[in-house]
């Protein structure tokens, strides 16, 4: 009952011995994620937590441990290189948590992804979780609960807010995908919605967006044409002044484009239940979904 990751996921963590990598990998292992390998160039042969083998290259992790998903906690100057290494090792799913990767590096990564079979999630994202089965990233595991709601979002804590509202109401999530706040990212809102649309175990979808770009409008157009599952949405940034980037490099209204109003209008036009405030995301979903 999920998309992209589940109990069969075999995770390799790139940057496993760094401070962020080791802290979050430990948390993920405690949650039950099947971490089969780590990669830190030069530290091949070591063991992480006395159990997880560390390799010098991603290819080694694939060859020796059958890793099929990679998580990246590598610092920004080297993160794009790490993504490319995972792509070259033909890992089908790469999740880049790292915040602050240069845009030029991501443009190069995007060009490489186009000629590969790898899906990238992120960068600058909280990661992905299929509650009860697999948590990859920095989200607090305990706020989630296995269930039927698929959630896609550009933002970390705003996603936790929505997850917690669903969980507090006694329901759960199929998978939550954090696609990240950068202007160039691997997986779009639209692609995440497509995954939930095709997943038989996802009954309802929550889309959380923010100002900037047109990704939310594209997802809305797809939903309007194709999706029968009940959908709710929230767009952050109605009060953000034009021309200022609101924290996320992608969150900017410029030249009258990317406004919250335009996005909400597109979502409403697609028949999506749009929450007026971040406190009413679950309520907006329950208006259209009767579990």
């Amino acid at each position: 009952m999920s998309v992209l990751v589940n109990k069969d996921t075999r995770l390799v963590v790139q940057g496993i011995t760094g401070s962020a990598g080791s802290f979050h990998t430990t948390q993920c292992m405690e949650y039950g994620t099947n971490v089969v390998a780590g990669v830190t160039p030069g530290k091949g042969g070591q063991k992480f937590q006395d159990t997880v083998p560390v390799f010098d290259t991603v290819q080694d992790a694939v060859d020796k441990e059958g890793a099929n998903v990679a998580a990246i906690y590598v610092p920004p100057p080297f993160a794009a290189d790490s993504i490319l290494e995972a792509v070259d090792a033909e890992i089908p799913l790469v999740i880049a948590i790292t915040e602050g990767i240069p845009v030029r590096d991501m443009a190069e990564v995007k060009a490489r992804l186009a000629t590969s079979n790898t899906r990238l999630i992120g960068p600058n994202c909280p990661g992905i979780i299929t509650p009860g089965e697999c948590k990859i990233g920095i989200m607090p595991g305990y706020i989630h609960k296995p269930g039927k709601v698929g959630i896609v979002s550009r933002s970390g804590t705003l996603t936790y807010e929505a997850v917690w509202q669903i969980t507090s109401a006694g329901h759960g999530q199929s998978t939550c995908i954090g696609i990240g706040g950068d202007p160039i990212n691997g997986t779009s809102h639209l692609e995440a919605v497509q995954l939930f649309h095709e997943d038989p175990d996802t009954e309802a979808i929550i889309l959380i967006g923010e100002i900037g770009g047109t990704a939310e409008e594209e997802a809305a157009a797809f939903i309007k044409e194709n999706v029968d599952k009940p959908c709710a949405a929230f767009i952050a940034g109605r009060t953000a002044p034009p021309g200022r980037r609101m924290g996320h490099a992608g969150a900017i209204v410029s030249g009258g484009k990317g406004t919250a109003e335009a996005k909400m209008e597109a979502l409403l036009d697609a028949g999506i239940s749009v929450a007026e405030t971040p406190s009413h995301i679950a309520e907006a979903l329950f208006k259209v979904w009767k579990p």
Partner: peptide
Amino acid sequence: MVNGAGLAMATMDIIKHYGGSPANFLDVGG
């Protein structure tokens, strides 16, 4: 004062929703 850029923006929005006016955006990070 909020943690996370998306939630910080959403907090500004909800202040406005209830008739107030936000003085700032502030993300203290993760």
